[in-house]
């Protein structure tokens, strides 16, 4: 039993955090809102250079050969800066699915992903819309009982505008000639695992988003003066923040456990992911609510950066399965006849 990250994992997290905080500034995010694609090719090149796009690509295909678990702390940091590029999607959803599909497809695309030359985007039946479909060089699309691989010329995209200007969402119509890469039982299994990994990515980012909102709010309330003192000295403001800290503190371990569970393909992976996503997104939603409150009218503006993180938190809560979906999965487990619950059942 060892529930800690290795020194290497923690050092990697530190260095990626430093990079992201320095590079993915709110100003840069705002600048990307004004561009047609909303995506930043230079930034993607930087990420590739650091090996991040190929982090979960096998070493023999040019990647770092790491697991979902190795990536999870980095996914938190992606949330911390509200990274708009599909890095979490790449490392946690697209690459593992390609790895599972294997063969020609994997051999062809994984090296290009690792090199930062291509983006592969996954769209499941469960996804109402596909984020970043417009920058995909290849789309892996679940359609009924099949998974198809479609090139950009084989799809028609319909843009749907989100409240979060960083998110670019598309309905995807796929041409009949797109290649089938899996079907039947196997396609369904791959889709479930992809959905789990997508939800896991949301959960990890939600932790980072919540932490960022807390950090911004601690700073703001320590500076903002009213009634002759910093408003952060008022007990009501303190308790708003403390309430987030409590929920956030207890959302972390479930996310890490879910990452481990996914990486090890444990039987309880889906349930662990649903748990993680529910508690992490709830912590982030609470952070959004309380942080806008302690910001006062400033928090309600477009100019203050809080909304960048708040809107992303709202959106992630309903992406890759909303609360109803994940509660249902947990409920199916705990309300089942003879479910193993209680003391000692957690790692059994």
């Amino acid at each position: 039993m060892d529930f800690t990250f290795s020194e290497d994992q923690l050092l990697f997290q530190d260095s990626v955090r430093d990079f992201l905080v320095n590079e993915v500034t709110p100003e840069r995010i705002r600048a990307s809102w004004e561009t047609a694609s909303g995506r930043d090719a230079a930034l993607w090149a930087q990420l590739a250079e650091l090996g991040l796009t190929g982090l979960t690509v096998p070493e023999e295909l040019g990647g770092l050969g790491m697991s979902e678990l190795d990536f999870i702390l980095l996914a938190q940091e992606c949330g911390y800066v509200a990274l708009a590029e599909p890095l979490v999607h790449t490392a946690l959803v697209a690459v593992p699915l390609l790895r599972e599909l294997g063969g020609e497809l994997a051999a062809q695309w994984l090296p290009r992903i690792a090199a930062g030359e291509a983006k592969v985007i996954v769209g499941l039946e469960h996804n109402l819309l596909v984020e970043d479909a417009h920058v995909a060089d290849l789309l892996l699309l679940q359609r009924g009982e099949r998974i198809l691989a479609a090139t950009p010329d084989q799809v028609a995209l319909r843009h749907n505008e989100s409240v979060d200007p960083s998110r670019r969402l598309f309905a995807v119509d796929v041409a009949a000639d797109a290649a089938e890469v899996a079907s039947g039982e196997r396609a369904a299994e791959l889709a479930t695992r992809a959905l789990d990994r997508g939800a896991l990515g949301c959960a990890a980012q939600a932790l980072g988003l919540a932490q960022r909102m807390v950090d911004m709010s601690v700073q703001y309330t320590s500076e903002r003066q009213q009634f002759g003192q910093a408003i952060g000295a008022f007990q009501a403001v303190k308790h708003h923040m403390a309430n987030i800290a409590v929920r956030l503190e207890y959302a972390r371990a479930p996310v890490h456990r879910a990452a481990y569970s996914v990486a090890c393909a444990e039987a309880v992976a889906s349930q662990a992911v649903s748990h993680a996503k529910l508690v992490a997104c709830e912590a982030a939603n609470l952070a959004a609510k309380n942080c806008i409150q302690v910001h006062g009218a400033m928090g309600y503006t477009w100019e203050v950066d809080l909304h960048i993180f708040m809107k992303k938190a709202w959106a992630l809560a309903n992406s890759w399965g909303d609360a109803g979906f994940h509660k249902t999965r947990v409920g199916e487990h705990i309300f089942a006849e003879g479910a193993a619950l209680g003391a000692g059942a957690t790692f059994a």
Binding site: L128, H159, N160, E161, S162, R167, L169, W314, N318, F325
Partner: peptide
Amino acid sequence: DQNMHATAMSILGARAELLPHAPDA
């Protein structure tokens, strides 16, 4: 007012974030 709108967002799920004019909203 906050609670009612939060509940509506929950009901709308993945549609909640879409602007009203979005084609799939």
